[in-house]
């Protein structure tokens, strides 16, 4: 009886006013990312089989590109100390890595990961709605990162071009407020690469935003990265900061 009621309500609800999947995705993006230029602190804590492997501390500067609406990112390494001062720049699929010891600005491919388990795309600010076509795949109650039950929309995301870290994503967003709850990220062949929980929502720049992402490796569930963000500040990021030739002279003030 309960199932029948659910099915009827779901069918009726979907028939009456199925939410637009792309709009849900855009709303979810707006919760993760401020619309303007900003900087934030990011700490990655990596675990293998329950043991902490190390922490990476980053400062991230992001500015929406005027042409694509996608973010341009500059990432500065603070820790571990052997990496202090190194920089990574992302303009679309163009990635540069700068080492102050060698003064070299080296072009790297999107697949070249510098952050352990976390892909470059995991720490970069990305508007998913710009790169993926979303389809509403269902409505369901899901356990969120705080282990609370949440009514959610399940969105199936398909990359609209090749310049993305993950070809397919399943994203659950809160049906009440479009907050991202959980994501599953897949390879071209459909293999689960990682699962992410977005949690510990805090008021940042006027909006409740997730301050922590828990990333679980798809192949090795004992490989876990806790990504914490804080000190989110709206600030002007000049265009000139976000190009290869500026890397040798970048110094946060």
């Amino acid at each position: 009886m309960r199932k029948l009621l659910f099915t009827l309500l779901l069918a009726a609800g979907l028939a009456q006013a199925a939410p637009d999947a792309q709009q849900l995705l855009a709303a979810s993006d707006a919760i993760r990312n401020p619309g303007q230029s900003f900087s934030l602190d990011n700490t990655l804590i990596e675990y293998r089989n329950g043991r902490e492997q190390g922490q990476t501390q980053l400062q991230i500067y992001a500015r929406p590109a005027s042409d694509s609406g996608q973010y341009r990112n500059l990432i500065r390494f603070l820790a571990p100390l052997r990496d202090a001062g190194k920089l990574m720049l992302k303009n679309g699929n163009e990635l540069w890595f700068y080492d102050p010891a060698s003064k070299a600005s080296v072009r790297i491919s999107p697949q070249q990961r510098l952050l352990g388990q976390a892909a470059n795309g995991d720490v970069m600010t990305v508007n998913l709605a710009r790169d993926y076509r979303a389809r509403l795949d269902g409505e369901e109650a899901i356990q969120d990162g705080e282990r609370q039950s949440r009514a959610s929309y399940r969105l199936a995301l398909q990359a609209s071009h090749d310049d993305v870290t993950y070809p397919r994503i399943t994203l659950w967003v809160d049906a009440a407020n479009s907050r991202p709850i959980k994501g599953q990220f897949y390879s071209d062949s459909g293999r689960l690469l990682k699962t992410a929980f977005y949690r510990r929502y805090q008021l940042q720049l006027g909006v409740q935003r997730p301050s922590e992402t828990v990333i679980i490796d798809g192949l090795d569930p004992g490989w876990i990265t806790v990504m914490r963000t804080g000190n989110l500040l709206a600030r002007d990021i000049p265009e000139t900061w976000l190009q290869r030739d500026y890397l040798p002279r970048f110094r946060a003030e």
Binding site: R2, F6, Q143, R147, F197, I216, P221
Partner: peptide, 17 residues
């Protein structure tokens, strides 16, 4: 009216959290 919540996919997810 929804069925019981979909639990975190596995014990591994709960362990990670």
């Amino acid at each position: 009216a929804m069925p019981l919540p979909v639990l975190a996919d596995s014990a591994a997810e709960l362990d990670a959290l």
